[in-house]
Design a protein around this nucleic acid. Structure first.
Length: 463
RNA sequence: GGCGGCGUGGCCGAGCGGUUAGGCAGGGGCCUGCAAAGCCCCGUAGUCCGGUUCGACUCCGGACGCCGCCUCCA
């Protein structure tokens, strides 16, 4: 049984499905006004792993994640760069999908764009105004949080204590500092949509509630995002759903953030590294492995040291794939356990990995077991037990693929010159001409190849 | 001030009331002509102070330290 920590109840509990065998999940996506950073990489990887694992375990998953393409930050960026808002969105949405593709995050089943749902948002806000749940001020329409009895459910504290902690509010027209903008009236030179209550643009919290309920329907199963979205974003989405009279997400999942030194990586602190930059100097799979090696609810340290650490681990996995000539699985497609049957040691491995991941996505434990199995597979092969070894190695590849990590055992393209050197070295070795063999090896190393000998002769590969 | 989380060996990072986490780095060994890759062995950690217990890294209490949310943020 799949179990997952639920933020509302503060405990790991069964992940139920509204409809048996089908899981509906919504993950809050990015606002496209800048390059994605490592934090975006982490949350997308975490929930991509979750999605893939649920699919592996036999669920039919409908995964929805939005693109926020209207927002104050986008307007500010457009004005700064002197280009239309739509161009800012197009540029950074493109960068987003490139990065997602690079880190192997599968495309959501649906990618709603906020601007395509403005009519629905306007209708919802009108109904809130009619019922007195929302009220206008000089700059927009606000939601009256006092109208939702259990406001603060996700924050884990009652309205009063939230209000007590609220920082000084610039807008004294708001009835409560916690009231949030459903709609912002446009200023000069700002994009707007027409509305009876005043032209303008929707607030962020309204976008997600309309899109998630619109695509997944009442009482969908799982709503995810970073911990920092818990409050106020998710709280406010939920408040609107309550006021709307529609059952909302049944289970809430939140992931931990990326730390830089002792601080959270964030836009406001400016201490972020863009995912795009990192991918230029790192195998994207190393970042996935790094993410998998800590629990999704814990903060992760991303530094040159931890990335290098993951890269070396990855190198061992790839070496296994080369040794057993394992096929590359996953990537754009999903792996399901129904497509694989294991027995013996491979079955034991699959079982313990499943137990780990079924229990609140304990990927670090699963990875530990897989690395243990990696040593076992090599040891079996070293002692000549080829078929046993192969069975374990294949299971390792399948189980990593179930978490979206593709092992790369492909051989590199070897040019004619290098191929000739390999032949020369094999000749020298069989002649026991060690000086010549070493000279040829040095030459290969100089050309950037890693040289490995085996009983069947010299093999070379790129580092 | 309110709420939540964390403190594990050189580094990263899990589970568990008593039996090995795992990875990286380091040391020793096997294999190898020498390497590389691979395998085996090794350090035997748990912020501090109390308590519960036959026994605590694991439960309870306290102290200290750190991080986060309460404002846009994944």
């Amino acid at each position: 049984m799949l179990r997952l920590f639920d933020t509302v109840h503060g405990e790991v509990r069964a992940l139920r499905q509204r409809e048996e065998g089908r899981l509906t999940m919504y993950v809050c996506g990015p606002t496209v006004y800048d390059l994605p950073h490592l934090g975006h990489g982490r949350f997308t990887l975490v929930w991509d792993v979750a999605r893939r694992w649920f699919v592996y375990r036999g669920l039919q998953v409908r995964f929805v994640s939005n693109i926020t393409d209207i927002d104050d930050n986008i307007i500010a960026r457009a004005q700064r760069d002197g280009v239309p808002e739509a161009e800012v969105c197009a540029t950074y949405e493109d960068a987003w999908w490139r990065a997602m593709s690079a880190i192997g995050v599968a495309r959501p089943d649906d990618v709603p764009h906020a601007t395509a749902y403005v009519d629905e948002m306007v209708a919802l806000i009108s109904s809130f105004l009619e019922r007195g749940v929302a009220y206008p001020t000089s700059d927009g329409i606000y939601f009256d949080v006092s109208r939702v009895a259990d406001y603060g459910l996700l924050a884990g504290q009652p309205l009063d204590s939230l209000r007590a902690g609220a920082r000084v509010e610039a807008n004294d027209e708001k009835r409560s500092p916690l009231d949030f903008a459903l709609w912002k009236f446009n200023k000069v030179n700002e994009p707007f949509w027409p509305a009876a209550f005043g032209d303008g643009r929707p607030g962020w919290h309204t976008e997600c509630v309309v899109m998630s309920l619109g695509l997944l329907g009442d009482g969908f199963d799982l709503h995810c995002g970073g911990f920092d979205l818990k409050f106020p974003h998710h709280e406010n989405e939920r408040a609107q759903a309550v006021a709307w009279g529609r059952p909302f997400a049944q289970h809430w999942g939140h992931n931990g953030w990326v730390m830089v030194g002792e601080q959270k990586m964030s836009k406001s602190l400016g201490n972020f590294t863009s995912l795009t930059d990192m991918l230029e100097r790192t195998d994207a799979r190393a970042y996935r492995l790094l993410v998998l090696r800590s629990h999704y609810r814990s903060p992760i340290e991303v530094s040159p040291t931890t990335i290098a650490d993951a890269e070396r681990g990855l190198a061992r996995l790839d070496a296994l794939a080369r040794r057993f000539d394992l096929p590359a699985l996953a990537g754009d497609s999903f792996v399901t356990q129904a497509d694989h049957s294991f027995s013996g040691a491979a079955l034991e491995l699959a079982t313990s990995v499943s137990l780990a991941l079924d229990d609140d996505l304990n990927a670090p434990l699963a990875v530990a077991e897989l690395f243990e199995a990696l040593s076992r597979a090599n040891a079996l092969a070293d002692s000549g037990e080829e078929s046993e070894a192969r069975a374990v190695a294949e299971a390792i590849a399948v189980l990593f693929a179930a978490m979206g990590l593709v092992l790369d055992g492909a051989s590199d393209d070897i040019d004619a010159a290098a191929a000739a050197l390999v032949i020369a070295r094999d000749q020298a070795r069989s002649d026991k001409n060690w000086a010549e063999a070493d000279r040829v090896r040095d030459e290969l190393l100089t050309l950037g190849w890693v040289v490995e000998d085996s009983s069947s002769g010299t093999t070379i590969r790129r580092p």
